[in-house]
């Protein structure tokens, strides 16, 4: 199994290099510059020209890229033009928020989806199955941001149960109250995200369980006299989780990207919101850093998925 993992990690190196070049060039190709809108609009073009020059923005792309990579290895991703603070610090501050929300959403998603998928499959074709199916279709069809806006309106505004912006109350005392406040802030976005992120898992699990129920090895288990409950536990459930395990790693790191929608609608200061803001301010350094991180996270996600699969499915381990 270590061989499998090692090989997968080696494959990632050229992927990351290509990714970084692409990311860098794409950011460069964006129109506009970081200064025109951010200082006095009547500023002298010559002054902007000067700023561009001292920031190295007129150098050839490979030189800029090389500078960027060298700094990258020193943990220096540059300064944000918009916030005037190191990108590393800026992102790590936001990443914590996103991590909280992502973790909470993922755990909730699986808590909702696994029982729903199992239950639907167990009662295939009956009323609970139809209800769950309709539920997944509806959540799949409605755009996510519409749900978020409606959710905020009902639970945040009309009922007033949850806060509608931010990640922590500024008046909370340090220690436990802060943690409680953080949890309180991610409750609504987390629950909404989980309720509407279940569709893939539910449908995959449902069809896998239905397949497994009629499979020959389950019939073998029945002929051994294994009670139905144990058949589900030992034979059906684990075998049906394979495709879900296949994208579990991906979905965990995918959520770390920060949900653009959730964070924007809830003004939740995570990576997603930072990303949107940076794009509108042409904050190159932040954009390149974020896109690079997203890319690496996705590569890590597939790696994680492969590792999980090789643990649960003996058939794909390299001998």
């Amino acid at each position: 199994m270590w061989k499998t993992i090692l090989r997968r990690i080696l494959i990632m190196i050229p992927e990351i290099i290509i990714l970084s070049i692409l990311v860098f060039l794409l950011a460069k190709a964006m129109p506009g510059d970081p200064f025109t809108g951010s200082i006095n609009p009547k500023a002298d073009p010559a002054q902007i020209h000067h700023l561009m020059k001292i920031n190295g923005l007129y150098d050839p792309w490979y030189q800029q890229y090389w500078n960027w990579v060298v700094h990258l290895f020193h943990g220096n991703l540059g300064n944000s033009y918009q916030y005037q603070e190191p990108v590393t610090r800026l992102i790590s501050g936001r990443a914590v928020n996103t991590l909280w929300l992502a973790l909470f959403t993922t755990v909730l998603t699986y808590c909702f989806a696994l029982p729903m998928g199992m239950y639907a499959a167990k009662h295939e074709g009956k009323l609970p199955d139809s209800i769950i199916r309709i539920y997944t279709y509806v959540t799949y069809c409605i755009p996510f941001f519409v749900i978020l806006v409606i959710g905020i309106w009902i639970f945040g505004y009309v009922l007033g149960w949850f806060p509608t912006t931010g990640s922590v109350s500024s008046t909370a005392n340090p220690g436990f109250p802060t943690i409680a406040s953080r949890l309180y802030h991610i409750l609504l976005p987390g629950i909404l995200g989980a309720l509407f992120g279940t569709v893939n898992i539910v449908q995959y699990l449902r069809s896998e369980v239905i397949d497994a129920k009629g499979s020959d090895y389950v019939r073998t288990a029945r002929s051994k006299g294994v009670p139905e409950k144990d058949i589900y536990r030992h034979h059906i459930f684990r075998n049906s989780l394979l495709p879900i395990a296949a994208f579990a790693g991906y979905s965990i790191t995918g959520l770390l990207n920060g949900s653009l929608f959730t964070e924007t609608v809830f003004s939740y200061p995570g990576m997603g919101l930072l990303f949107i803001n940076s794009i509108s301010y042409r904050d190159y350094t932040v954009i390149t850093a974020l896109v690079l991180i997203y890319g690496i996270l996705n590569l890590l996600g597939t790696l994680l998925s492969d590792i999980i699969l090789s643990i649960v499915d003996p058939r794909i381990r390299i001998q």
Partner: peptide, 14 residues
Amino acid sequence: GMIFQDPLSALNPL
């Protein structure tokens, strides 16, 4: 005890 027709699929692969 029962012996099944298709030995390729009658055992749990995991």
